[in-house]
Write a protein that binds this DNA or RNA. Structure first.
Length: 645
RNA sequence: GCCGGAGUAGCUCAGCUGGUAGAGCAACCGCCUUGUAAGCGGUAGGUCAGGGGUUCGAGUCCCCUCUCCGGCUCCA
């Protein structure tokens, strides 16, 4: 049998040779390091026969993602083994590797709860399995044998998994892996043994529905992570520690940007500094929108439930709306701007010459999100979006989508962070003809391709009224959040009876495009705080410069400098507390001040300031006017701030 | 909403098996008059999330509620 190695050479092996044989044929060092092989796009056990004439890659600890996934999957089995020993009667379900580690889901016997306090004991037992150097032995079992075995053990979840595999894929055998005393239904692959798990740590415990279905049993999920070396594990734990330090909830409090209170769960209280940032972003959105033909409107907060019945929200979304009543009329606070904008559009006659009409509104929205989903600024009940709705003709869709997408990408470029794009296509339950969906999806896809953007397709994830492009990014801990969106909507125009007069003097139905770039300003600021670790670029910084008089003899001069700079439009504070200069510099640094301007005897005499720049330290003395010009240029260009050395 | 955890001064936290609440930082008041990341001294500050219960006695034990944290589900 011949297989091709990554460098193009061909390796000849006896028929039936395994991955281990191949590694040994290449060299004894590789034979020791080999963990698995990759062939035909699939990671396979070292002990399994190779596929002839397929490219072969030997996976070792240096193989990155593939290697980590292997030992984390191994670690999940070791976790299950330890848990079964410590908690007799526990039922096991599934335990895959994930981006940052692994988890395993269990159903513990009645009355047993596992908390982080139990981790030491579980980890100790896991280390015993690792120290024992158990091998992972793969075996095939017939469905009949496997079902009998797992039924006998009372492992109901394994039984269900096998039954579903039989039903959906018609399989008649399954693979099981054994390490030490523990055997698990598993597709594999695994490393040869437990010994390659160099370092393992359990991290958290959480509830998780069996098969992600809220109507089924809530299992107990234990999360952990594993690495080849203790050093790598420690580096990861250190990274997580630093990520927590830039958590927007913590920085928001420390920097005085916003607070939360029990009196209004899920709603931020914006302090002056946070409000400044908020207003800068609204200003940016407004400025960029005006350049692109968006016109701002203002629509009400509260609407008669009739409007929500027209829009369809009453049927589909009512449990997420805040509803109230007055004088026997039922009202709902708006969770979205679109019905208001559609109503506005319906209020006048439109010619095809008027289209597209682009209404934007950074309006306040309320959504009654489930209490358990609230999360700092990233998931709130009260927020504003850089929201807009475009009313256009079928022919204009492509151009308008292009404008929206470019608008979004140009917005993100200002902040220098990457977004992931997702194209969601027609769901099972939908309105409109297949031709309509073909056109709509085609238009979105064409723009994405024309712009050379990479994106993921989520088949069936579109809204019932049209396909959409969503823009996602991640927070400091790697959790994904949706920011912007571009959604085609054929439904709302229908429901509101929207029309324009075409060149043929007949009525036509416009198409509506829902779009946002940053999404909610709240969420965007949360992401920005973590992205910048609180060190905002000058144009966003709540306080752009803090003037520090050396002693109270220079307070007047410091205030004069501040007043001059404010006259130039800069946001300037004076810290004239009777604290030592060192202390006030420290406080300024901790407040992430972009510039600290020291004013003492010399500066007061010649109209200068001694400039200390964040991360650069003392950059020398310059005339006040010169500093103002430097800062103004930095702000005008929305320049990124210097990074830590 | 569901599972688990947590809630003590403005913030970070201590408070052993029940016996009248404590530290650091911040705040306030003085002194110091300060040259690029913490000057010194003093003062004040708590319905121990809220409510109910057990007990001679509850921050500590039990129950309910609220909020937050980690996940899951949801996000038209």
């Amino acid at each position: 049998m011949i297989v091709t190695l990554p460098d193009g050479t061909e390796l000849e092996l006896p028929e039936g040779a395994t991955g281990a044989d191949a590694a040994a044929a290449i060299g004894p060092g590789l034979a020791r390091a080999a963990l698995a092989v990759r062939q035909a796009g699939e990671v396979r056990d070292l002990a399994r026969p190779l596929i002839a004439r397929e490219a072969l890659e030997i996976i070792t600890a240096k193989s990155g993602r593939d290697a980590l996934d292997l030992i984390r999957h191994d670690a999940a089995h070791v976790l299950a083994a330890a848990v079964m020993e410590l908690y007799p009667g526990v039922k096991i379900s599934i335990g895959p590797p994930i981006e940052q580690g692994f988890y395993y889901d269990f159903e513990f016997p009645d009355g047993v709860t596992v908390t982080e306090a139990d981790f030491d004991a579980i980890e100790a037992r896991m280390r015993e399995h690792i120290a024992a150097g158990e091998t992972f032995d793969r075996a095939e079992a017939t469905v009949v044998e496997a079902l009998a075995r797992f039924r006998a053990e009372g492992q109901d979840y394994k039984v269900e998994l096998i039954e579903d595999l039989v039903r959906d894929q018609g399989i008649d055998t399954v693979s099981v892996y054994r390490n030490g005393p523990f055997t698990d239904l598993c597709r594999g692959p695994h490393a040869p043994g437990t010994a390659t798990i160099g370092a393992v740590k359990l991290q958290s415990v959480a509830g998780a529905y069996w098969r992600g279905d809220a109507s089924r049993t809530m299992l107990t999920r234990i999360y952990g992570t594993a690495f080849f070396t203790k050093k790598e594990l420690e580096a990861e734990l250190e990274r997580l520690e630093q990520a927590r330090a830039r958590d927007h909830r913590r920085l928001g409090r420390e920097l005085g940007l916003f607070t939360f209170s029990e009196v209004s769960p899920g709603s931020a209280f914006w302090l002056p500094k946070g409000t400044t940032i908020f207003n800068q972003l609204v200003g940016l959105s407004r400025e960029m929108g005006e350049e692109r033909g968006f016109t701002e409107v203002k629509t009400p907060q509260l609407y008669d439930s009739e409007l929500w019945k027209t829009s369809g929200h009453w049927d589909k979304y009512r449990q997420n709306m805040f509803v109230t009543e007055a004088e026997d009329r039922e009202f709902g606070l708006k969770p979205m701007n679109c019905p208001g904008h559609a109503h506005l559009f319906a209020g006048q006659r439109w010619s095809y010459r008027d289209l597209p009409v682009r209404y934007s509104e950074p309006g306040l929205l309320h959504r009654n999100e489930l209490s358990g989903t609230l999360h700092g600024l990233l998931r709130v009940r009260h927020f504003a979006q850089d929201d807009a709705h475009i009313f256009c003709t079928e022919e204009q869709i492509e151009q308008e989508v292009r404008t929206c997408l470019e608008f979004a990408m140009e917005t993100f470029a200002i902040f220098g962070f990457a977004v992931e794009l997702e194209l969601s296509t027609r769901p099972e339950q939908r309105i409109g003809s297949d031709e309509m969906w073909d056109r709509a999806e085609g238009a979105l896809q064409k723009v994405l391709d024309d712009e050379g953007l990479s994106y993921q397709v989520n088949p069936g994830d579109g809204a019932f009224y049209g396909p959409k492009i969503d823009l996602h990014t991640t927070d400091s801990l790697g959790r994904s959040w949706q920011l912007g969106t571009v959604q085609l909507d054929y439904s709302m125009p229908e429901r509101f009876g929207l029309v324009y007069t075409g060149a043929d003097n007949a009525d036509h139905r416009p198409v509506m495009i829902h779009t946002a770039r940053m999404g909610s300003f709240e969420r965007f600021i949360g992401i920005l705080v973590e992205h910048y670790a609180g060190e905002f670029p000058l144009w966003l910084a709540p306080v752009q410069a803090t003037v520090l008089p050396i002693s109270d003899k220079h307070a007047d001069a410091a205030h004069a400098v501040a007043s001059t700079l404010r006259g130039q439009g800069l946001r300037v504070d004076v810290d004239d507390r009777t604290e030592s200069l060192g202390r006030r510099i420290r406080d300024g640094e901790l407040a992430r001040a972009p510039y600290l301007l020291v004013v003492g005897e010399r500066e007061a005499a010649d109209g200068t300031v001694s400039v200390r720049r964040r991360h650069e330290g003392d950059i020398g003395t310059m005339p006040v006017a010169e500093f103002a010009a430097v800062a103004a240029a930095e702000i005008a260009e929305r320049r990124e701030a210097p990074a830590p050395a």
